[in-house]
């Protein structure tokens, strides 16, 4: 299996807090991987490093076969420019906990912004695709609504459509349902389930253990900036080997 993401001994500190303490992982393409763990375990930081929203202190990350953030010359890694990093980010799409839809744009405008402004595609083609994407996430009627007129669940579905419009090879979800009212979680998970069954590679940081058990091919448990346990949902979530994993699952289910 070809890995879409490879991380090698990645370290990242925020002040005195070591958010990632030497993380190494290979994530295969075409699979859904869920990352679970207590808050502050570094799972969101790992996701943000993969999309270069955070710069790593040391180590290396490859996305789709390309070293990200740096160019290797001899035995040194030179930092890339703003434009090169922007181009590398096109490989992955990101969905945020707080949706982060552009507040001054309608749902449709949010979705076509990337294709038109960044990828310089024809506006009419972008609109056609955006309308199809809105239908796919069940929001065809909301194309002209501003984010402030949509519920949290609807906003998150538009955000997923916005990320998909860039035709990424990989989708990153950073706690996509954590900011939602309980009754709105289902609609977002259902869109993600459809996406998974279409074969999209997904890395999902989540607290929804039910979703992880049902949809994930693999589950990773992280704690204190390190990967504690990795395996099938059955192995990690039902029969965890490590005490820390058992404690976490017990705490979540309690």
């Amino acid at each position: 299996m070809i890995p879409i993401v490879v991380a090698a001994d990645v370290r990242k500190a925020f002040g005195s807090v070591q958010a990632l303490d030497g993380v190494s992982i290979e994530i295969p393409a075409g699979q859904v991987m869920c990352i679970v763990g207590p808050s502050g375990s570094g799972k969101s930081t790992l996701l943000r490093c993969i999309n270069q929203l955070e710069r790593i202190d040391s180590g290396a990350i490859w996305v789709d076969g390309e070293l990200i953030g740096y160019r290797r010359v001899g035995d040194k890694l030179y930092e890339l420019t703003d434009a090169e990093i922007a181009r590398q980010r096109l490989t992955s799409g990101m969905v945020f906990q707080r949706f982060n839809l552009f507040q001054h744009m309608t749902a449709l405008e949010n979705i076509i912004e990337g294709p038109v402004t960044v990828q310089k595609r024809r506006r009419r083609d972008a609109v056609d695709e955006a309308v199809a994407l809105l239908e796919r996430v069940g929001l065809g009627a909301k194309r002209d609504s501003y984010p402030s007129e949509l519920s949290g669940g609807q906003q998150q579905r538009v955000a997923i459509a916005r990320a998909l419009a860039m035709k990424p090879k990989l989708m990153l979800f950073d706690e996509p349902t954590s900011a939602l009212d309980p009754e709105l979680v289902g609609e977002v998970l259902s869109v993600m389930r459809d996406l998974a069954s279409s074969g999209m590679t997904m890395i999902v940081v989540t607290h929804e253990l039910g979703f992880a058990r049902e949809v994930a091919n693999e589950v990773v448990f992280m704690d204190r900036g390190a990967i504690v346990e990795r395996g099938s949902p059955q192995e990690v979530l039902v029969h965890p080997q490590q005490q820390r994993t058992r404690d976490f699952i017990a705490a979540v289910l309690a």
Binding site: A86, R87, R89, Q119, A163, M166
Partner: peptide
């Protein structure tokens, strides 16, 4: 979050400023 979302769809710093930040 607006800046992060703009970055995540591949915008450079200047485009983010012009298209996303200044209008808001």
């Amino acid at each position: 979050g607006q800046t992060e979302a703009a970055k995540s769809i591949g915008m450079t710093r200047l485009t983010t400023l012009r298209r996303i930040i200044l209008p808001q």
